[in-house]
Write a protein that binds this DNA or RNA. Structure first.
Lengths: 155, 155
DNA sequence: GCACAATTGATACATTATAACATATCCATA
DNA sequence: TATGGATATGTTATAATGTATCAATTGTGC
């Protein structure tokens, strides 16, 4: 993510927090910024380490979990279930706009690409889904595999 | 799962193991049987407890993980990433037949329903999926929500 | 019996996550 | 100003999940 987009996302993130009557504290900002400026998902423990390296300050893992859970609740961060790691994305991204997302996670380089999926597509995608009478609360799907670039390298 | 289907699945499971040049040991059989006869997913630790209760024998958690990982490798068991738990299914099920599956996981009763998805449907219905040039190795999607029955109860 | 691979046991450890309670900070307002 | 409530963080302990390593056992073919 380039500098301009980062700044704009951080500003928007602050707005989002305020709109929820919550604060955009320095720690929340730092954690979000770390996630926005790394290209691979990070675990809570990795985030705590990163925090120490980048800021000459520190944050407890417990706080990292709380911060992540807060940032998730306002849709600024997502947890990848298949990796137990976390990602962020620009506030101009489809992920932030609360559509259903498909995360393509590369097993080699760990990078994650995001595609948007409409809810109607989801229903269409899975035959008999409507018959099942199941009320989905899921806004993300995860797919593991090999990305374009890694495939080229491996070939 | 009824008794007849259980027996047939266990027999088929033995075949599958032998076809892979591996054994269908008593422990593997017990673990599989526990998974086949529970209606909710179980964690490795829960399986170890269950094993003790049901068999008057026991198995180390380490072994449970090895057994699960083996059973997964021959497609007799699946791990649910969103719950860190494991499920099995009849050998007559679509899941066993290696199609892509969608697991509908109920947040209330924990029960899991399975739908089959063809690979071509997956590619077709995520817009821009082909553009991404991503090679998927995923054979399952997980959806959290509320099942039919629980919804009726809650209403 | 012996060699070999597959399986399991046992111990230790790593990683991920939550519980519980204390403290701090900020803001509205009495 | 102070005080009360909500929000946020610190601290410690512990639970839950998972892996590494090496030894022991079991079964099978020769």
């Amino acid at each position: 993510m380039n500098k301009q987009r980062l700044t704009s996302t951080l500003n928007k993130a602050k707005q989002v927090c305020l709109e929820h009557g919550r604060k955009f504290t320095i720690q929340r900002k730092q954690i979000l910024q770390i996630l926005l400026t790394t290209d691979v998902p990070l675990s809570a423990y990795e985030l705590a380490s990163c925090y120490k390296l980048r800021t000459s300050s520190s944050v407890s893992v417990m706080s990292v979990y709380r911060i992540l859970s807060f940032l998730e609740s306002v849709n600024l961060v997502r947890r990848l279930n298949s990796a137990n790691k976390y990602i962020a994305y620009g506030t101009d991204s489809e992920v932030f706009k609360r559509e259903t997302s498909l995360f393509l996670i590369c097993r080699h380089c760990q990078k994650v690409e995001t595609l948007a999926v409409s809810h109607s597509d989801v229903a269409k995608l899975f035959p008999h889904f409507d018959d099942a009478g199941f009320t989905s609360q899921t806004k993300q799907f995860e797919m593991l595999g090999v990305c374009n670039e890694c495939q080229a390298k491996l070939a």
